[in-house]
Design a protein around this nucleic acid. Structure first.
Length: 337
DNA sequence: TGCCCTTTGAAGCTA
DNA sequence: TAGCTTCAAAGGGCA
């Protein structure tokens, strides 16, 4: 994976002096000291360093991280931006320790011109930029993911699935995973465990939490589900006066069966079929789900199923709602008066 | 351009 | 601690 440009050309002159001001450097130091070496911030910083092949030793997890950062090897910075900058100027030739003349990046030239250049400041700055702009350490793969990675191309060739949707391929892979003998699966579990351990060693401070809700897609999906959930309950859907339309779970004051399925999925509502979205592994493993009642939730769900006790409870709900409505009306009248 | 779909498993979050 | 949510990969579909 090639490195992306850490910043835009216009961003460079605007941010560099500010980012490297004594005030900001002290702020970075304070943030890291306050958060401690195990904080997500420091973990990400460390991880960012690891990703850039900057050697981070175990000692870096102790004492002042800033001091440790001073010992980092200066990462080589190359990006389309710096390349462009180098091409634009003949300046920036530097003699190395072994006597060779090398062209240094635009960033370094800029650093030299606006600051008393120091490797530690530059290193911190680069790490901050990467942390803020691009670093995203991915989760290690689980056993199924390894299985998928290895078998997907084979399956595509085997079934000629190239024209089909990837999701369908994954369905087939899911079936094959289930059909796979335990011994075969164990191979992938071992791969996953090795990957986890390697990941943990490489990114000691990293947590999967850091990747949560970083993608809009995920957040959007979550928000959507929350909205839908609110609309699911029979009380909200049909109202207190239409208890005859409630599902039998709500009538019995149990968890609403709509709380686990999407009411916008008309196919599911009418036929109890969840093929369009499929049950989650969790819900499918939880024994008889309330969804089982979807098929029951039709005209045949007669009132006779509701026993006397349930009727009483529903009646109490109706009376309670009526009393609340009366109270609201009274309040409104008083307010008007 | 970026999210959705679809799978399982690991890990994080919440009540 | 149980139950739920998010994110890993992949790539065509779709808005």
């Amino acid at each position: 994976m090639g490195m992306r440009a850490p910043m835009s050309p216009s961003f460079v002159p605007c941010v560099m002096p500010a980012a490297l001001s004594p005030h900001n450097v002290e702020m970075y130091r304070q943030m890291m000291m306050m958060n401690g070496p195990c904080s997500p911030l420091y973990g990400s910083m460390a991880a960012a360093g690891m990703k850039m092949d900057v050697p981070l030793t175990a000692s870096m997890r102790t004492s002042n991280p800033l001091n440790q950062m001073n010992q980092m090897r200066l990462p080589f910075v190359s990006s389309p931006i710096t390349s462009m900058a180098n091409n634009m100027t003949n300046d920036g030739l530097r003699r190395t320790r072994d006597g060779k003349v090398k062209k240094v990046s635009f960033l370094l030239q800029y650093m030299e011109s606006v600051t008393n250049y120091s490797k530690s400041l530059y290193s911190i700055y680069i790490q901050m930029v990467r942390l803020l702009q691009e670093d995203h350490i991915k989760k290690p793969l689980n056993a199924f993911m390894w299985f998928m990675k290895e078998n997907r191309p084979k399956l595509m060739e085997e079934l000629g699935y190239k024209e089909k949707q990837s999701a369908e391929l994954n369905k087939e892979l899911g079936k094959r995973w289930h059909d796979l003998p335990k011994e075969e699966q164990q191979k992938y579990f071992d791969m996953a465990r090795a990957d986890r351990e390697q990941h943990k060693a490489k990114y000691p401070g990293w947590s999967a939490r850091e990747n949560y809700a970083v993608h809009k897609r995920k957040k959007k999906r979550r928000d959507k589900s929350e909205d839908v959930t609110d609309m699911k309950k029979c009380r909200a859907r049909f109202g207190i006066a239409n208890t005859d339309q409630w599902c039998k779970f709500c009538k019995r004051k149990k968890k609403c069966m709509y709380s686990t399925y999407d009411p916008t999925d008309t196919l599911s509502e009418e036929h109890g079929d969840r093929t369009s979205s499929g049950p989650s592994p969790l819900t499918s493993s939880l024994g008889p789900s309330p969804l089982g009642g979807v098929a029951d939730h039709d005209a045949s769900d007669s009132e006779s199923e509701v026993d006397e006790e349930d009727r009483t409870l529903v009646d109490m709900d109706i009376q309670e709602a009526a009393m609340q409505q009366q109270a609201i009306t009274r309040d409104n009248e008083l307010a008007a008066f």
